[in-house]
Design a binder for these strands. Structure first.
Length: 280
DNA sequence: CTGCGGTCCTGAAGGC
DNA sequence: TGCCTTCAGGACCGCA
């Protein structure tokens, strides 16, 4: 699922390809996933590609925006030539490498013959024409405003299990299931710990661990695990899945060599992976 | 404020 | 083989 590192990778690649381009037309194949009238986009130019949390905000030359949330299985695939769009990598949840494919929901064409496909198996992802950027009101964990002080205040003002808090986009933006699990493992904190039980040192370690895994995720261009749809706009898989410590490692030995076995539990309906031996 | 369960959606995987 | 159930999960909503 795209979390901050995946969405940031998508943003960077998309920005390289589409800045300055003029929209020729937009085809909406799945109406429930598109908000606004796609016809009004014709003739507008791409000025900027920004991101807040997991939401991409594309600024147009008239000051309006296209907001995109990829949710669980959304993909954006850029094609220099839309009439012969083929992506070489195996793309999860698609029957073919030819675009459009059966999960293609929206197609954006540029005047120069290029464009991008918005694919999404589960139809949770959306695109929206808007007068303003969209995104959680909290602080993006990549922002300089995401300080240790902010993190400490957020953590100590809650009693929820720490993992639930990390994934709460209204408290801090960008962390999803993968990076929450990985950060807690690095900091040696159990996902079940109540936030107000963490001491100053643990909070600091966790803060550093979050920054570390997010940077790592971006460095490896996101994670494309076996059952994930994530792929970059240029059709490449991420590499972060090769560096997972505990995520999807149930039953395996703790990578710290402590002798523990990675355990899987359910929290808030989602899987948590951790080493019960060295995370407490 | 917090938590819980249902909802959206589709395809893969497991059980019998 | 084949049908049926379960699972996957980000965000949101209604309700306790």
């Amino acid at each position: 699922m795209p979390e901050l590192p995946e969405v940031e990778t998508i943003r960077l690649e998309l920005q390289d390809e589409i800045i300055g381009k003029e929209i020729k037309s937009v085809d909406v194949l799945s109406k429930k996933q598109f908000f606004g009238n796609p016809k009004t986009l014709t003739g507008k130019k791409i000025k900027k590609v920004d991101r807040t949390g997991k939401i991409i905000n594309i600024l147009l030359n008239d000051g309006t925006f296209i907001n995109i949330h990829l949710k669980l299985t959304g993909q954006i695939l850029f094609a220099p030539d839309m009439s012969h769009a083929v992506f070489k990598n195996i793309i999860p949840f698609t029957a073919t490498n030819q675009m459009p494919c059966k999960t293609t929901r929206i197609i954006v064409y540029f005047k120069d013959g290029s464009g991008f496909f918005f694919n999404d198996l589960r139809k949770f992802a959306w695109m929206k024409i808007n007068t303003h950027p969209e995104g959680p009101k909290s602080i993006d964990v990549l922002s300089p405003d995401f300080t240790l002080d902010y993190f400490q205040k957020t953590v100590t003002s809650s009693k929820r299990p720490i993992k639930i808090l990390l994934m709460d986009q209204e408290k801090m933006a960008g962390i999803g299931n993968i990076y929450a699990n990985e950060a807690l493992f690095i900091a040696r904190i159990s996902p079940e710990r109540r936030t107000n039980s963490l001491n100053e040192n643990e909070i600091k370690n966790l803060y550093e661990a979050i920054k570390q895994v997010i940077r790592e995720g971006i460095k490896y261009k996101g994670s494309s695990a076996a059952d994930e749809a994530y792929i970059t706009p240029k059709g490449k898989k991420g590499e972060m899945q090769n560096h997972f410590r505990v995520y999807q490692k149930e039953g395996q030995k703790c990578p710290k060599g402590c002798g523990g076995i990675v355990k899987r539990i359910k929290q808030g309906g989602r899987s948590s992976f951790f080493c019960p031996n060295c995370q407490s």
